[in-house]
């Protein structure tokens, strides 16, 4: 479904990501794990069209989408939820969600799905996004991404700034989405949560993909255990 080959990307000529290749198949949940500053955000930004890669290719459902700007990529079925969420703070929850379906009108069925998934949002439809708590804003960011009715949802550290309980809730919602057939690609530092959700994963280390495998394989990898699971 999504295939990244030999991707290099960065800012002002300095490639943060070097020669990264990975793939996500339809219906899978795939994680990119790595420590702070490993380049997860840069990698995702160049996949979803917020940053033009300097080398390499991004293919989606057989089509080359390298360098296609973000506003067009979302219409092809890839929704991105950045770590900073990028909500519209002075607009209401409902307005944020409605814009997720831009340029169309929000589909009532999708809206219902989002409200079922996040009952908090249903209660707070008229509240301004900027006045909500971090956990609620994360729900809204995911909800807004779902309104575009994507086939693939890409999330950059969805647990950023969330208390452990809320982080677990966020992953529970992602599990529910995967069970509905949505393909999930997630970058995460909180590796145990991501491992419980994902089938496979890649380890991003200093801008390069160093290891890959199924979640079980990664959980047994000595380097991964030491660096990301706190087990020696």
């Amino acid at each position: 479904m999504l295939e990244i080959t030999g991707l290099s990307a960065g800012y002002e000529g300095n490639d943060v990501i070097q020669d990264a290749s990975f793939r996500v198949d339809s219906g899978e949940a795939v994680m990119i794990i790595g420590s702070n500053g490993a380049g997860k955000t840069t990698l995702f930004r160049s996949v979803v069209g917020l940053l033009a890669p300097s080398l390499g290719a991004v293919r989606y459902e057989g089509t080359d989408i390298t360098g296609v700007p973000a506003q067009r990529i979302v219409r092809r079925g890839i929704s991105f939820v950045p770590a900073e969420r990028r909500l519209f703070p002075r607009m209401t929850v409902r307005e944020n969600l409605a814009l997720g379906a831009y340029p169309g009108r929000p589909d009532p069925k999708t809206m219902e799905l989002v409200m079922d998934l996040f009952p908090r949002l249903a209660e707070r439809q008229r509240q301004r996004a900027g006045t909500m708590s971090g956990g609620e804003q994360q729900m809204l960011a995911v909800g807004r991404a779902l309104m575009a009715d994507p086939s693939l949802i890409v999330l950059d550290e969805p647990t950023t700034g969330l208390a452990p309980k809320l982080a677990a809730d966020a992953y529970e919602a992602l599990g529910a989405l995967r069970d509905r057939g949505l393909t999930v690609l997630v970058a995460e530092q909180q590796v145990p949560l991501a491992m419980a959700l994902c089938d496979r994963g890649y380890v991003l280390d200093n801008g390069r993909i160093s290891t890959q495998g199924t979640s079980a394989e990664l959980a047994n990898d000595p380097d991964v255990r030491r660096a990301y699971l706190g087990i020696t």
Binding site: A70, Q71, R85, R86, P89, R90, M147, A148
Partner: peptide
Amino acid sequence: TLGRAVRSVIEDEEGARLVGID
């Protein structure tokens, strides 16, 4: 919808791009 799209670009240009607004 178009008017909201204008507001969304004023509030967060990157967020606007992520929902498909040019």
